[in-house]
Simulated scan of single mutants.
Amino acid sequence: MGTYGYCAPEYQRTGQLTIKSDVYSLEVVLLELISRRRVIDTTLPSNEQNLVTWAQPVFNYTSRYVELADPLLNAEFPVRGLNQAVAAATMCLQEEAEV
């Protein structure tokens, strides 16, 4: 089935691999790079253990994208670049592949 956390929801439901499921997995990796968090981290509180689930509420608010950035960067990064990277992840980490 693939590694938990990287599998696209439609792949978990159908077992069919598609280009879209590959894109989903790639965007999970992008989100890991942005946030410096593991896709699954059981050392965190239960509501923060799954990276995508933790990040999804932020996806709806461009002004909150900086909350996803690696805290070790101390906000020393081009915000426009962060916004573009998070926007790409947002578009590709949808529950429904058609979206």
Results as ranks from 00 to 15, higher is better:
94 Q>H: 05
78 P>L: 09
47 N>P: 08
40 I>L: 15
47 N>D: 15
48 E>G: 05
88 A>T: 12
66 V>S: 09
7 C>L: 14
81 G>D: 14
87 A>F: 07
9 P>Q: 05
23 V>H: 12
29 V>C: 13
82 L>V: 04
97 A>F: 01
38 R>G: 10
86 V>Q: 04
29 V>M: 14
79 V>C: 10
42 T>I: 11
83 N>V: 00
61 Y>G: 03
85 A>D: 03
31 L>P: 00
82 L>Q: 02
33 L>T: 15
48 E>S: 10
16 Q>I: 10
63 S>W: 07
43 T>Y: 03
55 A>D: 03
70 D>E: 08
54 W>P: 04
41 D>W: 08
72 L>H: 10
70 D>W: 02
40 I>G: 04
19 I>F: 14
85 A>S: 12
83 N>E: 15
80 R>E: 13
22 D>F: 09
16 Q>L: 11
56 Q>R: 14
31 L>D: 05
58 V>S: 06
70 D>P: 06
49 Q>W: 00
22 D>Y: 08
23 V>A: 15
32 E>V: 06
39 V>W: 02
50 N>I: 09
35 S>K: 07
27 E>G: 14
36 R>D: 15
30 L>P: 00
68 L>E: 01
68 L>K: 04
76 E>S: 11
64 R>W: 01
63 S>E: 14
9 P>C: 02
98 E>G: 04
82 L>H: 05
42 T>S: 12
29 V>N: 11
94 Q>M: 03
39 V>N: 06
81 G>P: 01
47 N>S: 15
5 G>P: 07
96 E>G: 06
29 V>A: 10
72 L>F: 07
20 K>V: 05
3 T>W: 09
71 P>C: 08
54 W>F: 05
5 G>M: 04
37 R>T: 13
27 E>K: 11
36 R>Y: 10
55 A>Y: 03
52 V>E: 06
30 L>T: 14
28 V>T: 12
93 L>Y: 02
33 L>C: 14
14 T>Y: 00
44 L>H: 00
11 Y>D: 00
62 T>H: 02
60 N>V: 05
55 A>C: 05
74 N>P: 00
82 L>I: 06
52 V>P: 02
82 L>Y: 03
92 C>Y: 03
6 Y>E: 07
17 L>K: 06
25 S>D: 04
14 T>M: 03
40 I>Y: 09
88 A>L: 11
2 G>C: 10
73 L>E: 12
49 Q>A: 08
75 A>L: 08
42 T>R: 11
98 E>M: 11
22 D>S: 12
40 I>M: 14
17 L>N: 03
62 T>N: 06
35 S>I: 09
97 A>L: 00
